[in-house]
Design a protein around this nucleic acid. Sequence first.
DNA 1: TGGCAACGGCAT
DNA 2: TGCCGTTGCCAG
Length: 806
Amino acid sequence: MIAEVYIDIPANPVNKPFDYRIPDYLDEVIQPGMRVTVPFGRTRRLGFVTGLKEQSEFKQLRAIDSIEDHAPVLTQELLDVGLWLAEATLCATVTAFQAMLPAAMKAEYKKMLQVEESEQLKAEDPELAKIFETGRQLSWTEITKNNPELLKRINRMLKKGLLSIHQLVQNQANAKKVITVSAAVSSERLKEEVSQLSDRAKRQKEVLNLFIGKSEDASYKPTMNALVQNGLSREAITRLADKSLLRLEQIEQFRDPYANYVQQTQPLDLTDEQHKALAPIMQSMNTGEHRVFLCHGVTGSGKTEIYLQAIQRVLELEKQAIVLVPEISLTPQMVLRFKGRFGDRVAVMHSGLSRGEKYDEWRKIREGKVQVAVGARSAVFAPFKKIGLIIIDEEHESSYKQEDTPRYHARDVAIHRAKIHHCPVVLGSATPSLESFARARKKVYTLLTLKERVNRRPLPSVQVVDLREEMREGNHSVFSRLLLEKLKDRLQKKEQTVLFLNRRGYSTFVMCRSCGTVVKCPHCDISLTYHRAHHLLKCHYCGYEQKAPDTCPTCGSDAMRFFGTGTQKVEAELNRLLPEARVIRMDVDTTRQKGSHEKLLRQFGDEKADILLGTQMIAKGLDFPKVTLVGVLAADSLLHLPDFRASEKTFQLITQVSGRAGRHRLPGEVVIQSYTPDHYAVSDAARHDYEGFYQQEMELRHRGGYPPFFYLALISLTHSEPAKAADAAERIVSILKKNLSEASLVYGPVVPAISKIKDRYRYQCMVKYKREPALIPVLQKIMQHFQESGKDSLQVSIDLNPVVLM
DNA sequence: TGGCAACGGCAT
DNA sequence: TGCCGTTGCCAG
């Protein structure tokens, strides 16, 4: 038999299946979807088997070395999804396969050195011989990294055949193993043994006594660790196992990151609106018909309960469900709602888990141990066999789009998979993306609307404060007088406040007041942000940091001033203005550590703080009964970015943040601070008027030729020499113009707002199109022609339906 | 991707 | 002439 294998090299010339002979001992074992190690050129590489066949057009086939998996890691369906994904996003097929698997399954390649002729080596290079004394294989990188001088000598020995190279393909995925202990003989026998043991074997007797009477209970299999923790002796246990009285078994164990909290919940009664929304979803599941629903429900309208009851039905049908949530809202709050309803039938996948934990959750899905997968973007690839429902909560969230290859949108993958499985997709949001809402309007999706909050709670009242006026009247503080007053009021009433600011760090840029110099990143075309904790300037693009200068690097003046406001500065301001207020700050800088995110939220939930101050990450999913005030400090911070979605993002953000207030008994209030209070994105959000915003924004998109009226393809070029990137961009634009239809528009080349990132200069071209069958083939050709390999080379990246244009 | 042959420059 | 770094090609 012959296997078709995709090699683990994401480069154009090898982006196709290679034929390999299956050795006899692997005949009948190898199946499509398994990973194998194969000889490739002069090395060994990991590969994915995508098909089996009898014949090959190639005469000289090499044989598969070994298998990496005992069962396929990709189902036939996922293999097909991978091929589709590679074409749809213009990436190498292996890259698509890798994206569907947990990171722990990425192969690691190691070059090993071994002695072939030890006597001769000793004669030629005694020092080297000493290193290889044990005769064992040693890692090439480990030997050479501390001692680069050895490289030449090793090469010399290799040429003479005294040393040899062995390529090793390592699978990093290893299940956590635990040892369980059980009785190997009857309780009767154990009693006998106890009496026969000498008095000195006190510890062994202790162990045996524990197992007496439990021999017959097959489920009694405590782990070695548990026994040792309870004061029994590991030595004694192994001794008894040696005597065949106890049995030790190694079993694979699943790490369970949520083992500690599971609190069972029951389905809630649905409101009329919720019933009406759920019914068509149920119907679609019952008839096994693929449909896409857009559930547009105001914040607090109980979308999650609809999801939960729909999933309930999926389980009754003995199928599986995938629930996607934005990375940021994967707080225990959200996860617990699913865990609480479905308990250990749920696997959770998100970036807060360790590599091993993610791998375990993934295995639970593959092995059919769970029926529900809750996770961020990549959970859309959950290896379920019979998907009954896919839910995408907060469907407008930009984190559903992967920003590096493969540049896929989870929404597209979900719909693609749902078609294959004949099941519905439910997109949920209080602020749907214009694309989705437009599709619902055109009846491509089915619109489900929830206008009211559950329990009839009113939406919070929203007040917009004009910051220009505050300025005019001499208030230069971050807080308007209204917001400050309300903050004080809540402090007094012992109610809580959420403050939102979309910018971390202390200030946005540092400028010299004497000569106007703004301190920029030496590697990127962007100003550095001041972080007060360590008195540092940081680049938020490449991570570069330097000490904050006391004097201007250009003119030497000491008039360095900090402009713009970040969360750190607001925190300092709060401490100054309201010294009695307890503040929790949440941003990338305070949540970097594992578990800190949850910890901070728990503190706030336990009312250990009065004010929660944070960036994006606090905008959604939070639900605290005591929060009665929400402040948006700078509503227009996103509005003036060079991005056609700036208004949409602003509207969504304000709406989402406002939704954090007054979700329970206490009514909520929202204060929005803005320099452009009349902008429709701000004023419509304040009025909770999605429809109004939608109309106005669609008008502008229509005029500008932007989605949802046109599709976009963004081609980005980077090179360390600006001229090289510019030249390629010119040529690409002319190729596109020549090959695409008249109706498609080709723009560029342009220099993006950030012209340099990590010492590479950037150019962009863009295509706007409605229907363009020639596009994918042309872009594939462009990739093949222009993409160079090597370190200092031209990099081409193509993003179809980009979410961020920068 | 990475290994290697082929190539050319350069010190000897 | 041998050694080294660079370049381009190729893999089933």
